[in-house]
Structures are given as structure tokens and as C-alpha cells.
């Protein structure tokens, strides 16, 4: 199979994408996945407004707490880990809406499933693209939100690292929920009901590690547990998402 036989969705979307050059060469699962990833990135940058939504939401939720609780930095610092993680979780939940929806509507997902390429790898690539567009920016924005809550600048590297690991797990777990909800007309609250309970461990370890990082202590133990969750999600979640997409396409 050559690259030119790839799913029509990949081809048509890339026709006008200038940065990608493809020659006829064998396309094993990884190559197809890389193409799917770059396709998603290219498409996403055409709709920049959509990219900013989760970030704006994250900033907005963080801003609610000083208004609701108190502007005193000492009090805000105490709740900062919880605020950051709840906001990040909700923002990535909100972003899940965009993960598969457009591709399900225009038939790209169906093409992926029929392409003969490994659907698991293709969806893994899609989810990683989604994480690069939402999870990673959230992790990079978290320090600013944290500092607005009175967190010292010395905690910033730790917060970014913890957020990077945690948002990977959140995106992958969310991919299963988003794929399951594909077959439904209205899925807003259901998506939350499906994904949030499954991502509670991420919240627990992420918030604890952040708390330790803010206090200036070693956060390795919860971070390792968080990384273990991320590894587990990387291994199992794409399989689950692929099964869910197949079910929804039946």
C-alpha cells in the first residue's frame, strides 16, 4: 500500500497543505499515524478561534476563584492546586467536543476505519494532535494562572511538568468518552458523566503533586503515579477509542 492510497480524508485535507510532501513509499502504521497527526495540526491552525476556546475557558475559571473566595493571595495559594486541576480538567473536557466531531461528520473517521491502516494508531495520532493543541497549551498557561493565585515563580517548572504529564492522561481517557459519545445526537452532559469519573485518579495525583510543588517539596511520588497513569492510558486508551469508533460506525 502506498501513501496515495491513504484514506481520502487524509489526502483531500492535505492537498492544499503546503508543508507536506509525500512520495510513493510504503506506509506502515506509524507513517499513516504521522500523516494523520500533521493533517490534524494543519486543519487546526486554519481554525485558530477554536484552539483558543479551551484556553480562554481555563483562564476564565481560574479568574472566578479570586472573585468568589477572596483576593487574599495567602488564601488563594492554599486552594491553587485544586483550582488549577479542576479548571484544567473542565477545559480539556470542553475541548473533547472537537476531538472527533468534525471528522465523524465529514466521513473521515469512516475512511480511517476502512483504510486498512491500524485505526488504533490513527486515533492515537489524532489524540496526540489534540493534546498538542489543547493539553500542552494548558500546561504552558498554567504557570500564569498559578502566579495569579499567589504561587511563587520557583514552583513553575514543577507545575508545567506535572500538567504536561497529567493532560496527556486526560486527553487519552477523554478520547474513549468522546468516541463513545459519537453516535449520539446530544452528548454534552453525558460526555462529562462518562469521562470525569474515569479521570478522577489523574485529578488526585495531579493536584497532590502540584500542592507539593507549590510548597517547595519533592513531588516525585505523586508525579510517578501520574506518569504510570499516563503510560497506562497511552497503552490502553487508543485501543478503547478504536473499538468505540468502530461501534459508532456500525
Amino acid at each position: 500500500m502506498s501513501i496515495t492510497d491513504l484514506p481520502a480524508g487524509v489526502g483531500s485535507a492535505l492537498d492544499s497543505a503546503p508543508s507536506l510532501v509525500y512520495a510513493a513509499r510504503p506506509a506502515p502504521a506509524l507513517d499513516a499515524a504521522r500523516l494523520a497527526l500533521s493533517r490534524d495540526l494543519v486543519l487546526a491552525f486554519r481554525k485558530r478561534g477554536q484552539l483558543l476556546q479551551p484556553l480562554a475557558f481555563f483562564a476564565l475559571v481560574t479568574m472566578l476563584f479570586p472573585l468568589a473566595v477572596s483576593p487574599e493571595l495567602s488564601r488563594l495559594r492554599a486552594i491553587a492546586p485544586g483550582v488549577l486541576w479542576v479548571a484544567a480538567m473542565l477545559a480539556s473536557l470542553l475541548a473533547l467536543e472537537f476531538l472527533f466531531r468534525d471528522d465523524a461528520h465529514d466521513g473521515t473517521l469512516e475512511q480511517y476505519a476502512l483504510s486498512g491502516q491500524s485505526l488504533t494508531w490513527l486515533l492515537f495520532a489524532k489524540t496526540i494532535a489534540h493534546w498538542l493543541l489543547t493539553g500542552l497549551p494548558l500546561a504552558l498557561m498554567a504557570p500564569f494562572a498559578a502566579m495569579s493565585l499567589g504561587v511563587a515563580a520557583s514552583a513553575v517548572p514543577g507545575i508545567v511538568l506535572i500538567m504536561v504529564v497529567g493532560t496527556i492522561a486526560l486527553s487519552l481517557i477523554g478520547a474513549i468518552g468522546a468516541a463513545l459519545a459519537l453516535g449520539m445526537k446530544r452528548s454534552g452532559t453525558l460526555l462529562a458523566l462518562l469521562t470525569l469519573p474515569l479521570s478522577l485518579p489523574v485529578l488526585i495525583y495531579g493536584a497532590r503533586a502540584t500542592e507539593l510543588a507549590i510548597a517547595g517539596n519533592s513531588y516525585m511520588a505523586p508525579l510517578e503515579l501520574l506518569a504510570a497513569l499516563a503510560v497506562l492510558a497511552v497503552t490502553l486508551a487508543p485501543l478503547g477509542a478504536a473499538t468505540a469508533v468502530r461501534i459508532s460506525l456500525e
Partner: peptide, 11 residues
């Protein structure tokens, strides 16, 4: 449980 029942009810 509620998620499971909600998902089933959605189809």
C-alpha cells in the same frame, strides 16, 4: 453506573 445507563439510553 449512571454513566453506563446514560450512555445506553442515548442510543
Amino acid at each position: 453506573y449512571l454513566g453506563f445507563m446514560g450512555l445506553r439510553a442515548g442510543f
